[in-house]
Amino acid sequence: MTLIRDTTDADFSRIVKLNTVEEQQTSPMSLQRLRLLDKYSSYNRVAEIEGEVVAFLLAIPAGVPYENENYDWFSRRFQSFLYIDRIVVAAEFSGRGVGSSLYADLFAFARSNNIGTITCEYNIKPLNPASRAFHGKFGFKEAGTQWVANATKQVSLQCAEA
């Protein structure tokens, strides 16, 4: 059974390790960077199975001083949104509904906080087909694209109604 719960400081080292494995699909994140993201986030939760943190999802609301080119893109277009900065599921738990459980919880959180739009991005160059399929299941639609990371990656900027 998957338990979704708020992140605690005790989870931070595990979260950094999970992120490091998926750095190419997300972006680098040190412990210091995680502490900053945690400060900005309104949603920072983990998925736990049998006492082990196997995934995390971190989302940031509109209106915080977060310096991120994708977050900035959404900030210029939407007054209110919840930006999924990153979701990572340990590879050995992929395909077991862990990510879907976190997204269902995130959407419920957004609705309970009167946030009507959830935003995110995923790589299209290089293509991340798993992320494209996953986000499609939750009703995400492309709102635009942009090149990031010194023009080494192109992302699809996505929106969904909560």
Rank of each mutant, 00 (worst) to 15 (best):
A162T: 00
R86D: 05
S94N: 09
T152M: 09
W73N: 00
G136V: 10
L31H: 04
K125H: 04
P28E: 01
P129Q: 13
Q146I: 11
S101G: 15
E22N: 06
R33E: 07
L157V: 09
R14V: 10
E161M: 04
T8C: 14
L82P: 02
A108T: 11
A130S: 10
D6N: 15
D85M: 03
Q32A: 11
V16D: 05
F109D: 02
N113D: 02
D38L: 03
V98L: 02
D105M: 04
L34M: 01
S100T: 12
Q32L: 10
N70W: 00
A162E: 02
T119G: 08
N68E: 04
S80K: 14
P28K: 09
F138W: 15
F56N: 05
V54H: 02
V21A: 07
I115R: 00
F109P: 02
Y40M: 07
K137C: 05
F138A: 07
A149C: 10
L36E: 13
G95A: 12
F12P: 05
K137G: 01
L102H: 08
G99L: 09
Q154R: 14
T152P: 06
I115Y: 00
V64Y: 01
R76I: 01
Y122F: 15
A162H: 01
Y83V: 03
E52M: 14
L127V: 15
